[in-house]
Computed example of a mutant assay.
Amino acid sequence: MRAGRLVAMVLLLQSRGRMTAEQLSAELEVSVRTVYRDVEALNGAGVPVYGDAGHGGGFRLLDGYRTQLTGLQAEEAESLFLSGAPGAAAGLGLDRVLAVAQLKLEAALPAPLRGRAGRVRERFHLDAPGWYREQDAPPHLAVVADAVWQQRRLRMRYRRWAAPQEVVRQVEPYGLVLKSGVWYLVAGVVGAAGAAAPEGAAGAVRTYRVSQVLDVQAEGGCFERPAGFDLAAHWEAYLAEYDARRLRLHAVLRLRQELVARLPDLVDAAVVRAVAESAAGAAAGDADAEGSGADGWVTVTVPVESVALAVPMVLAWGADAEVLGPPELRQAMVLAVRNLAERYS
C-alpha cells in the first residue's frame, strides 16, 4: 500500500510540478504528517524530492529528473476504460488502481497534452445514476467482478421475485452492466453435471441484479467464454425482450399536451417512445380529428405492465389524462377515483 502511494507521489510531482503538502495530502488521501514521512522515505531511496519554504513553496522533483515507472500494468490498463465513471471503478474495487493508472498516463504525456488532459478532467464528469436514485452499492460486487476478470465460476445464493424466492445458482460470469446506477451480472447458468445449461443460447444466459446476491463464492479453475459473445449486443437484445415480455397490455389514453412534454421525467423510456409515435401519427392524420392535438389534447396508445400498475401511473397525472380503454382499466380508474373522493370527502 505504501509503495503504491510513494509511486503515486513521484508521478504527481513529475506531472504537475511543485505541490504543497496539503495538496499532496488531498490527492493521496493521507495526513500531512504522512506526506512528510513519505518525502523522507523517497529521499532515502535516492529520489530527489526538494522542499521550498515560504509563500508559493512546496515539494518538487529536481529539475530534469523523470521516473521510468510510467509503464502500465495489466490491471491499470484495464481500469482506464472506467476513467469516465469513477463511481463504477470504486464499486469494482479499482479506484486506487485507476488513480495510479491515470497518474502514469499523465506523467508520460508531453507537457502540452498533459495540460489538455487536465482541462478535460476539470470540465467533464459522468454521473451514472438516474435522478431520484442513489448509486447501487452491492456488498458482493467486488467478488463478482473479480470472477468476471478471472473467468471463474460462481456459486451464489440469490433472491428473486418468483417463488421460491431464495435459490442457489452456479453460473459462469460473462460480464457486468451498470444501468442507471444499478449493477447487473450477465452469466451462463451451469447445469448439475457441470455443463452449460442445455436449453440453448437464449435460455443459457441469465441476468441477475447484483444487489440481490445474498452470498457468493468463487470456484476453482477457469471457464471458457462463449466464442463471439458480445456483452453490449446481448444487453441490447435483453432490454428489447424484457420490455416486450413486461409490457403486455396496451392502454388508450387522452393526454393534455402540456403533460406529454413532461413525460420523460415521469415514466420509463418505452412509454415515452409510444406516446411520441402515437402523437406523431395523430398529427400526420386529420388535424381536425378528435385526438389529433388541435384541441390541446392528443390520443395515444401506450404499453403497460398490468391494470394494477397502470392505475397509479395514470392517477399521478391527475386531470391531464383520461383512460379510454381497455374497459377494465377505465373501470379500475373509476373505482380508484371514487375511493379517493370518499376518502377526502
Rank of each mutant, 00 (worst) to 15 (best):
R2C: 00
A3W: 03
A3P: 09
L6N: 02
L6H: 11
M9C: 02
L12W: 12
S15A: 15
S25M: 08
E29I: 02
E40Q: 14
G44D: 15
G44W: 06
V47R: 02
P48L: 09
D52S: 13
H55C: 05
G58M: 02
L61A: 08
D63W: 00
Y65Q: 01
L72W: 02
S83V: 09
S83P: 09
G84V: 04
A89L: 08
L92K: 07
G93M: 10
L94W: 15
R96A: 15
L98V: 04
V100A: 06
A108H: 05
P110M: 03
P110C: 04
A111F: 02
R114C: 11
R123A: 14
E134V: 11
A145C: 00
W149E: 14
Q151S: 15
L154I: 11
R159D: 12
A163Q: 13
P164W: 00
Q165S: 13
R169E: 09
G175M: 04
K179I: 01
L185S: 07
A196Q: 10
A201Q: 11
A202E: 14
G203C: 09
R206H: 11
V210K: 07
L214C: 07
Q217S: 13
A218W: 00
E219V: 06
G221M: 08
G221I: 10
F223V: 08
E224G: 01
R225S: 13
G228A: 06
L231I: 10
E236S: 14
L239S: 04
E241Q: 11
Y242S: 15
R245G: 13
V252N: 05
A261G: 01
D265P: 01
A274M: 02
A276H: 10
A284W: 11
G285R: 03
E290Y: 08
G291H: 09
P303F: 05
P303G: 09
E305P: 03
V307C: 07
W317Y: 08
W317S: 00
E322M: 09
L329H: 10
A332L: 10
N339K: 14
